[in-house]
Design a protein around this nucleic acid. Sequence first.
DNA 1: CTTGATCCTGTAGTTACTACAGGAGTTATA
DNA 2: TATAACTCCTGTAGTAACTACAGGATCAAG
Lengths: 132, 132
Amino acid sequence: MIAIGEASRQSGVGIETIRYYEREGIVPRPARALNNRRLYSANDVGRLRFLKKCRDLGFSLSDAKVLLELSEGSAEDCRSVKELAEAHIASVRSKIDELRHLEHALSELTANCDSGNVHCPMLQRLRTVDDI
Amino acid sequence: MIAIGEASRQSGVGIETIRYYEREGIVPRPARALNNRRLYSANDVGRLRFLKKCRDLGFSLSDAKVLLELSEGSAEDCRSVKELAEAHIASVRSKIDELRHLEHALSELTANCDSGNVHCPMLQRLRTVDDI
DNA sequence: CTTGATCCTGTAGTTACTACAGGAGTTATA
DNA sequence: TATAACTCCTGTAGTAACTACAGGATCAAG
């Protein structure tokens, strides 16, 4: 059993974040030492690492919580996992499309933007053009 | 001079958001009618539309504020505008890259995920693999 | 015995809004 | 003219997912 600092190091989840997950009921309350300090098992650290990976993959915290619960259930519900993941993939793809559109619009805006202009063409377009 | 509801309709910025921009000093305080209601000029609405476009383009509110100020300055500083916009384009591009990486990782994770499995391979990998 | 590291609880700040609550004034209809 | 429906006002709190303290206790090392 290790202290919170060590659990943070081993999982990559910040100390304050670990306490936050506990407050929010994302992870169960850990054991406590006699001096009231939190004590984490290897299992606890595993949970934190699992959550970290989900978050790094862009899953929302509540999705991550669901995945963690599915992962701890007796019969892992693969279909639910896949549905959640594919909805997430879809949202990632649409975000990519949006950003590509943005990138294009921004490139166009700055195209004629050179120092020395008295009136900036980008600002001009931001002020006047209706469809960006 | 129009009321806040009409200004919201004409600019596409929500009423509460307009009041929020005022509180935050993003836009100047508008005139007031005798009954204390806000009154907006065409100029005020123009500012709101400008902000709306910046936000739609993904600029942060503080960037949008800077752009608005630049746009109202006597000599428009085209270089500053371009720098801000290009930094933003760069961050959009790196976000796109990140998301593409995510998309790839997620697709891999779900590849063998079919209903009927007792143990979900995606959860397995989330539990065990070190580099996602 | 002191110094510095780590831990505790509890609260507030972050971004950019959004959603009330509770009240007042305005406009349209019966 | 009464009343209903609408718009507006201020002020506060909630959202996501942390992050950053404040103020205090405890622990390990020299």
